[in-house]
Design a protein around this nucleic acid. Structure first.
Ligand SMILES: [Mn+2]
Ligand SMILES: [Mn+2]
Ligand SMILES: [Mn+2]
Ligand SMILES: [Mn+2]
Lengths: 142, 142
DNA sequence: ACAGAAGTGTAGCCACGGCTACACTTTGCA
DNA sequence: TGCAAAGTGTAGCCGTGGCTACACTTCTGT
């Protein structure tokens, strides 16, 4: 085995972390989007959530059901969806991280439109440590 | 609607792209891993693939079945798994991209161990345009 | 040579995130 | 005011990627 290869158990841990991060991605994106809609439209309706996510309304309903199950949102039949305090905190955190990721990409030379697109997937795999490093890099750059 | 917000249909496209990228992630990671194992051990066995991915062997078997279905690998019962030419090309591309992502993270100040971990998830959402930008940045930095 | 260990296949379970189809409720307008 | 349009709920399908349990094959060491 080449010495530039990490031990197998460290490799395994990397994959586990990536899977774990991915399992949060849907939750994070919906939380942020519901918060966006609440700010822009006054409330987040299932149809609007679905339209923005690019999915059908039953898919959005299922995602919201998961958010509710995890204590991140509440809703009553035929009414809008609202974030709990926990959900709002997640939304704020996710929005900030998203912005930092986009800014960093642009700072290292990625075209802004591309940065926006790629960030939507990248953001969910940026750890706290990496986020801090990004912020430090951006601060240093002014 | 605030003017710092992208049109809804662009937002929708971002999410679609992220989902699409994600659907390739498993394929990419397995292709790279099978290639690793072929180089390090002579051949890629289901048990070894599973162990490194941190999953059980039936899970690895299913992933390999998908690789075969997509023309990226071949195998015969109770024998090892081998990449096709297409699969080997994907593995090479994925390995290169992984390395660039890790290098870029380190270049902007992310601790190397963290860079390795985060890159495992990030890599799948780095587009060609972003990869080129990363390479340019790294080249400029020497 | 063969028995036990190791490896592999496969059935069948689950959660998730897509979808269509259809029923029901709410909204809005003539 | 009431009816049509819009919105929502829900059942049920699929593919994917996890898992356990168990059967079968291959390998290995005595
Ligand atoms: Mn996202
Ligand atoms: Mn985002
Ligand atoms: Mn990966
Ligand atoms: Mn990788």
């Amino acid at each position: 085995m080449p010495e530039d290869t990490a031990p197998a158990d460290l490799t395994t841990m990397r994959f586990s972390r990536a899977r774990e991060a991915q399992s949060m991605a849907v939750l994070e994106d919906y939380a942020e989007m519901i918060d966006d809609l609440a700010k822009q439209m006054g409330e987040a309706r299932i149809t609007d959530i679905a339209a923005r996510m690019g999915v059908t309304h039953p898919t959005a309903t299922k995602a919201v059901a998961r958010l509710k199950r995890e204590g991140l949102a509440v809703s009553r039949p035929y009414r809008g969806v609202f974030l709990t305090e926990l959900g709002a905190e997640m939304a704020a955190r996710v929005r900030m991280r998203h912005r930092v990721v986009v800014d960093l990409l642009i700072a290292v030379g990625v075209p802004p439109e591309t940065a926006e697109i790629d960030a939507e997937g990248l953001e969910h795999h940026v750890s706290e440590a990496t986020l801090k490093a990004f912020e430090a890099y951006l601060a240093k750059r002014g």
